[in-house]
Design a protein around this nucleic acid. Sequence first.
DNA 1: GCCGTTTTCGGCCCGACTGTTTTCAGTCG
Length: 594
Amino acid sequence: MNPEISKIFSEMALFFNMQDDVFRYRAYEKGALILDNLSRDVSDIYKTEGVKGLVDLQGIGRGMAEKIEEYIKTGHIKEYEALKKKMPVDMEELTAIEGLGPKGVKVLYKELSVKNLKDLERAARAGKIRNLTGFGEKTEKNILEGIEFVKKNRGRMLLGYAWPRAQHLIEEFRGMKEVTEVSTAGSLRRRCETVGDMDILVAVENSSAPAEAGAELILDKFVSMKGVEKVWGRGPTKASIRVKGNFDIDLRVVPKESWGAALQYFTGSKSHNIKLRQIAIDKKLKLNEYGLFRGNKKIAGKTEEEVYKALGLDYIEPELREDTGEIEAMLCAVSDTAHRHVRCRTPHICSLPKVIEYDSLQGDLQVQTNWTDGDHSIEEMAKEAKRLGRKYIAITDHTKALAMTGGSDEKKLMRQMVEIDKLNKKISGIKILKGAEVNILKDGSLDIEDEVLAKLDVVGVSVHTSLKMSKKDMTERILRAIKNPNVDILFHPTGRLLKKRDPYDVDMEQIINMAVKTNTILEINAHPERLDLKDEHIRMGVGLGAKFVIDSDAHNYEHLKYLEFGIAQARRGWAEASDVLNTLPIDEFLGKLK
DNA sequence: GCCGTTTTCGGCCCGACTGTTTTCAGTCG
């Protein structure tokens, strides 16, 4: 229920903004964000703890709590409907247009009765918008372009596809002699599963005059790069472009002295930063992208570590900066003052984890080959994995219920095991494990006989069919499967495909608890389109004592690199190396299996 | 609308850039 109410709150926020009620606007915007980040469903909280449980959430007070209650009880919120009635505009759709905000929507509605994207396009094409006060020819043109963009490019880019592009860009800038530092920032640096745009930050030598120190050159290069389709804006320190593939990139240039403060500032998240600035204010300091100041005196800003330290905090990894309790955890650990735990109800809240490092995986436990729907042979996959530094991989081709992939039956699996034995003799430096990705059938049984499963080194199971079952049935189906003593790993536990398919309806808490009880490992599937488990379920699992593996789900040797994104996801889920079993050497890893 | 060992009232994060204005409001991140 959280996403529905969050959507209503954020739309209400825009209405309040339109009415110049900025504080109510902020409160509701924040309320929506809180609901998005909440690991429990509000209906669940309400059921067990009532309105009080809702009010206990930092940022949710009496007013919003009662609206949540109203929605749970009646399915709608009266005040929201009254707002919509007074001004029946599709606020979300219209403000999605770059450069158009609530104030603009108000004028467009009052003057031209624009209610939605269609009306907006008609008005813009008719040249009516340019005559409105506050608007002009240029704005009208931007609106038309914005409409085209929204039409073509609904949604965000997957992290796994944005990341390599950003790295490429970063290399370009690193090569310039004016540049002293360069990094991703924003949601990309926090490794959010999808990103709306790409933020790049660059530092130059001279503190007082960045323009003279080469900002001009850097921005020139940026806006004239190959593939630039549009320059949204260009100032002395900042430019914004759209590149081919309908993707926006922002570049900001800062003086070297402010690098840490700027990187911190532009990495966000927004609510993490607001909280930091509040801490600064409480200490009679001011934090902005140029540094941390006492009066006019800069007391920190060269590095991020310095900024956090000056605020009384340890360094916080970018992946954790989502304002989901990381600051409170730190304050608690540092000063032990009584405080309210914000939003997070997991038991390990009072210290920050030492999250898993990017180079810490030794094995990959889900790899497909040309025995089924993969592109390369077992040998090719193994050799590439070895080249990438893996010490072991499990070959986990599909099984027979997935006929379209040419899934293996028992006989084919036996043949494959013979082949793997041969290859293990032939190839040194990497161990190939015998495995399979076995289908969990509708009733929770598996499509391969136990007798054969017992012969495999690693058995992964997953749901690929009958995805639309009820939550109860789907949960029972998976519970039954992981109770099987031959089953080691539950692959992509929620079945989602980012931007394509919602997860199936399943009670993850029950699944995680059963996984712990039966010693079944949960997969963090690193494929950019899956990232399944997602961060909040990982965090729930860590809290409940579950163990994980991070796998590439490679169908091609290029895909073996994806592990990095699974690690990112694990970090976002507050997982430590000890929570992830394929950080172990092979013998220890095998010892952890059922 | 939310919050509180400085406050139950009076605050609420901060700055860049654009396009419209002739000094600034709106939007964005």
